[in-house]
Design a protein around this nucleic acid. Sequence first.
DNA 1: GTTGCGATGTTAACATCCTAACATTTTCTG
DNA 2: CAGAAAATGTTAGGATGTTAACATCGCAAC
Lengths: 253, 253
Amino acid sequence: MRKAERLNRLQSALDAGGYLRLKDAARLLGVSEMTVRRDIASCGGRFAYLGGYIAGGLESAGGMGYILDRERDAHIEMKRTACEAAASLLKPGETVFIDCGTTTTHLASRIPADSQITVVCYAMNIAEIVCKKPGVRVVMLGGLYHASSASFSSPESLEMLRGIGINTAFISAGGVHESLGISCSNFHEVEIKQTAIANAVTRALVIDSSKFDQVKPAFFAKLDSFDFLCCDDGLDAARSERLTIAGMRIVLA
Amino acid sequence: MRKAERLNRLQSALDAGGYLRLKDAARLLGVSEMTVRRDIASCGGRFAYLGGYIAGGLESAGGMGYILDRERDAHIEMKRTACEAAASLLKPGETVFIDCGTTTTHLASRIPADSQITVVCYAMNIAEIVCKKPGVRVVMLGGLYHASSASFSSPESLEMLRGIGINTAFISAGGVHESLGISCSNFHEVEIKQTAIANAVTRALVIDSSKFDQVKPAFFAKLDSFDFLCCDDGLDAARSERLTIAGMRIVLA
DNA sequence: GTTGCGATGTTAACATCCTAACATTTTCTG
DNA sequence: CAGAAAATGTTAGGATGTTAACATCGCAAC
């Protein structure tokens, strides 16, 4: 069948990234624009079709597209604000660890391209952002891919991480409970987060205020493991005071 | 200045991937569509603007965007064809190594999503493709990022690779010279390619025919290291015969 | 204040894209 | 080879995006 062949060609041309005008795609494939339209419509979702342009797959970072989109709409503004606060801890020339998740992407994108910062990460969505910045050095901890958080894990990566000195570790979490501790959804993240925390001079917890009083299956730290809490302004005064007394410095945007 | 703030918000919303309608962006930022247009136009290139939609940065895979684009135009059809040939060596359930470069992306995109294949890779542009496929297991070799080939390298990754059994290694090259050997542009790739070749049952060289008689700075193998040559149909008969005599099986699309 | 400038909003003419209906070509089948 | 079905091409009208010109607003300097 000819249609499949055309779709493969399109995919090849788009996988590497970038966009294609409908017009150019039609010429490339040697068919009319209408046929290209029909091809794309028939394999719904394989391509994103936006006003005269064809773009690669509609899923975003590393396959966790849909989950990410849902969650994004909910707290995106709070996450953005929390990361604005976290970004104030960035210093040129330093080495930082950036955790996985949907929150930390906002921090990654705030790293100035010319800051000579070294970023240590283990998630696709973070790597996709920082690898594009010319003046930023990137160390990726590899291993087996976990689609649920678009992250990698392996014993060798932990070994690599142990050999890296970190100025500031920016850790995210799925739940923060004042007495039970701090938790995330995926067990494979626990060792990585703990190692990053152990190797860091400064430890910053980056969360939006919806995470308080939540608990996820995998606990990885207590509150006193952190020096800073980077959060949006949804943090109420009573909690803020308790956390400060517990030794955490609150950082708001 | 307010414009900068709006642009930051846009960036945050788009970094994670995906697209935004102009209309939605205007609502999100609380300004008119016209203002959003002007913002985007003023910071030329930070966003891609396509027919009513705003997309993230225009650079593609892992920062080697421009180099990639230039090269892509040149040999894209040949590379696609070579990878069509290579894809015929894929078997469900197997473990394959996929090399870095602009050629192998076409192979990566041809891996069926439901094939239960395990992909071992060490480049951003490959990972970006295979991580999106639900039925594909991905092992990423991490390390320090090299923008020139969008790839990673580290001693620990080599260690990891040594522990992985590979059914078929798909290796790319920048130059193939019948007497001098096979070479690539980046020295850090050499050890990885050699280890992958050493650990693989079947070794396939995936190149387009423009690579013959070329030489790049880093040699990594001789021709007899490979079982298969996956190539486009630009391979002339005389060379094809010589290579066959040398023990290589030629695979065309 | 008011004057001027930059930023933002509004409108209208224009270009482009999208959809559906129909025409044509190709492919398959008996 | 005929006929049907699928694929592809063409056209036209409505919808949407684009651009430029002008109107309005807010702020800062004098």
